[in-house]
Amino acid sequence: MKPANAKIDTPERNRFLTTFMNQDEEKYTGYWTVRRYIGKGTQPTELNSQAEVIDYVQTTEGAVGYIDEIELKVGMNVVGRK
């Protein structure tokens, strides 16, 4: 799986971290620093806009991301809604 994250300090990222991950930005970045430090992975790709997330998901095999529901396009698979 190839997850995409929104850019830091964006409303969608903050909402995703709070609602789905039950984390704040500090915990999230700290988690990935430890993962990288111990050689067990790097954080997901960060994209600048919801349009970039949609493009990434539509053109990359195994990609998954999150967007506002109003941005949803025909043919996209929805994994979950909150």
């Binding site: 930005e25 500090e26 970045t29 700290g30 620093t33 990288r36 790097t42």
Partner: peptide
């Protein structure tokens, strides 16, 4: 400091 470091490190490695 720590927050900024973590964010920059994760971004640029």
């Amino acid at each position: 400091g720590v927050f900024r470091y973590n964010h920059a490190f994760n971004r640029w490695g």
